[in-house]
């Protein structure tokens, strides 16, 4: 069958302004949107530019706006979105070329929340692992799934309105460490999140949760951060 693929195009070396190109291509219901982009690039227009790597939803390279919603192009099939497909770059980050956006602001926010394990206490005397109960491990399991694709942050109206807002992805990373019973820097991170552009900017819109290709309940995680901030407890 044939699908119509309408793609956002912008080449800064040639175009004054962005535009859309429409391509009619043969596809199957089970084709990934990424497969369609590859077909266009391979046979119709080699200049079409996008990021991709793993092609099965674990590397986070190809988060895009597909029919107005954020998805990973490699984890979205034709049968999920229909035969008229519009593909656009993520909103809220500067477009560099076609579907490629500048990820630096996104990663800079990530780096602000101390996105690494901190525990300066001596290691167990036997040199083995720090112990952690299955329950304590389960406490932050959900937020360890994040692949930093930016689908959540770039679906967030609060982020669109204020790019200084840390955004859902950075908060998810903070959650992953704050609720890890082995980590010792929860209060430092909560301090960072309590600043103007921290969790206060989350208005519980749930776009992030809807957008997450890893099914992380992001709004819930942010709610837990807010609760921790209010109560001072990490239950």
């Amino acid at each position: 069958m044939e699908v119509t693929l309408k793609i956002f195009r912008y080449n800064p070396e040639v175009d004054k302004k962005w535009h859309y190109e429409t391509y009619s291509i043969e596809a199957e219901e089970t084709d990934r949107i990424l497969d369609l982009l590859e077909k266009v690039k391979g046979h119709v227009d080699g200049t079409l530019s996008f990021r991709r790597s793993c092609a099965h939803g674990v590397c986070g390279s190809d988060a895009l706006r597909i029919n107005g919603r954020n998805y990973l192009a490699c984890k979205t099939l034709v049968r999920d979105v229909g035969h008229k497909i519009t593909v656009e770059p993520l909103l809220g980050l500067k477009v560099i070329k076609d579907l490629i956006v500048d990820m630096e602001p996104f990663f800079n926010n990530y780096k602000k929340v101390l996105p690494y394990f901190i525990n300066e206490s001596p290691l167990p005397a036997d040199g083995k692992e720090r112990l952690q109960s299955p329950e304590d491990r389960a406490r932050f399991d959900e937020t360890t799934k994040c692949i930093l694709c930016a689908a959540c942050t770039t679906s967030c109206p609060s982020y669109w309105g204020n790019e200084s807002y840390l955004g859902p992805a950075a908060l998810v990373t903070a959650h992953r460490f704050i609720f890890d019973s082995r980590d010792e820097a929860a209060s430092q991170r909560l301090e960072i999140l309590s600043e103007t552009n921290g969790v206060a900017r989350c208005h519980t819109i749930f776009n992030c949760t809807m957008a997450c290709p890893r099914d992380i309940k992001i709004t819930k995680a942010i709610g837990e951060l807010k609760m921790a901030m209010v109560t001072g407890k990490l239950d």
Binding site: S53, C54, H56, V58, C59, S61, M103, F107, I147, L148
Partner: peptide, 10 residues
């Protein structure tokens, strides 16, 4: 790639 996109992640 951005480091976190590397194939070890798969």
């Amino acid at each position: 790639l951005y480091p976190t996109r590397s194939h070890t992640g798969a």
